[in-house]
Amino acid sequence: MIYEPFDESLKILTATKWEPWQKEAIRQVVPDAIFLEPDACRSLEELIFQADILFGSPKISPTLLAKSPTLKMIHLLSTGVDRYMVPEFKESPIILVNSRGVHGPLVADHAMALLLALSRSLHLAYEKQESKVWERLPIVDLEGRTAGLLGLGSIGKEVSVRCKSFGMHVVAVRRSGEKDPAVDKVFPPSQLHQVLEVSDFVICSLPLTRETYHMITITEFSVMKPSAFFINVGRGATVKEEDLIRALEQQMIKGAGLDVFEKEPLDPDSKLWDLPNVIITAHYGGTDEAGLKKSFAIFLDNLDRLKKGEPLRNVVDKELGY
């Protein structure tokens, strides 16, 4: 997608505070940039009505952002954009850019950490350690096992590389159904159950869209192996959480490793906290200082492209929702 170049100086707003190194880097691309940041005198909600560009992940309503007469582009530090998919923002002319590709290796590492912890009963071993109980726990040999990937974007492909290094067979569900050398076999969403039936570990990295909302329900858990583990590092609402709890309680699946949830933070009253076959992490699988700098590098590149009227990177398709 190509946009008209901008001749005037750009007012660039951050959702937090500008670091000196960020300002210096931006000036290399946009020498006459005007830097805006919220402070005691000016709130972020006020500044969005003055800024041309917004960098960061603002905790304000996308509906309010859509009302800005000046905003041309928003660069998010995250990959997920589901909260922005409201009619007002989708219909606005604001360009939405995400950090797709930045978090792939980080989140894939986190998915594998959950997979390995579950396969080696490390969550149960920690409980035994706390109680000073010496007990040999069951393990799952990964070699020859099947990993079923729900989603084959940057995270899914990185997960596949890691699974194959453990000698695992890898199959995947992909919206297009198009073959990919990263995995052994690709299935379209209409054949989701075929993937679930054969998988020993199901790793979900799907974005949240109209098509993926509650894609995994009790019906899907019922076709999985009773010995299978479910891992979610994508978006919480791709899974119907009450059905996941039911599947775990009734031992329809062996366990789950979860970094994302339907509602975050996870409610203290959620049954998930107390289930012995669940490992919970607080949606930090992609959090890393290096990731921030990689995202900022995309932002700098797009500033240069925006000034020149060249195609931008990582532009979100508001209709597809990613």
Rank of each mutant, 00 (worst) to 15 (best):
Val233His: 07
Val159Tyr: 06
Leu306Asp: 02
Asp301Arg: 15
Leu13Gln: 09
Pro276Glu: 14
Leu206Arg: 09
Thr63Pro: 01
Val233Ser: 03
Ser68Pro: 03
Lys67Asp: 11
Leu114Pro: 10
Phe6Lys: 15
Lys59Phe: 07
Glu127Gln: 15
Trp21Lys: 13
Ile53Asp: 02
Val86Asn: 01
Ser99Ile: 12
Leu65Lys: 12
Ala147Thr: 11
Lys225Leu: 11
Thr79Cys: 01
Gly234Trp: 04
Arg27Val: 01
Arg42Val: 05
Thr217Gly: 07
His123Asp: 10
Gly144His: 11
Val140Lys: 15
Met168Thr: 09
Leu96Pro: 00
Pro87Trp: 11
Glu178Ile: 12
Leu306Ile: 09
Glu8Ser: 13
Leu122Asp: 02
Lys293Leu: 12
Pro58Ile: 02
Leu275Trp: 01
Glu88Asn: 04
Glu127His: 12
Val315Glu: 06
Leu114Arg: 08
Lys90Pro: 00
Pro62Ala: 02
Leu152Lys: 08
Ala111Ile: 08
His169Val: 14
Pro268Gln: 09
Asp52Leu: 03
Ala125Ser: 11
Ile279Gly: 08
Ile34Asn: 06
Val29Lys: 10
Gln50Pro: 02
Gly291Leu: 12
Leu275Arg: 13
Ser57Lys: 10
Ile298Gly: 00
Pro276Gly: 08
Lys318Ser: 08
Ser270Ala: 02
Asp200Gly: 01
Gly151Phe: 05
Arg100Trp: 07
Glu24Gly: 05
Ala282Asn: 10
Asp180Ile: 04
Val97Ser: 03
His169Gln: 15
Glu197Thr: 15
Asn302Met: 07
Ser9Val: 06
His103Tyr: 05
Val97Cys: 09
Asn314Glu: 04
Met1Cys: 07
Ala108Glu: 05
Gln22Ser: 07
Tyr284Thr: 10
Gly148Leu: 12
Leu65Gly: 02
His169Trp: 12
Gly234Asn: 06
Leu206Glu: 01
Met1Ile: 10
His193Gln: 14
Val170Arg: 05
Ala66Cys: 02
Lys157Glu: 13
Ala51Arg: 14
Leu64Trp: 11
Lys263Ile: 13
Ile298Trp: 00
Ile139Pro: 00
Ser165Ala: 15
Lys157Asp: 03
Leu118Ser: 03
Pro105His: 03
Gln251Leu: 07
Ser119Pro: 01
Val140Asn: 10
Ile231Arg: 00
Ala125Arg: 15
Gly104Tyr: 05
Arg235Ala: 04
Ser270Val: 05
Thr70Ser: 14
His110Asn: 07
Ser92His: 07
Phe261Val: 06
Gly104Glu: 03
Lys263Met: 11
Asn302Tyr: 01
Asn302Arg: 11
Gln129Ser: 12
Pro181His: 14
Ser205Pro: 04
Glu158Pro: 07
Thr209Gly: 02
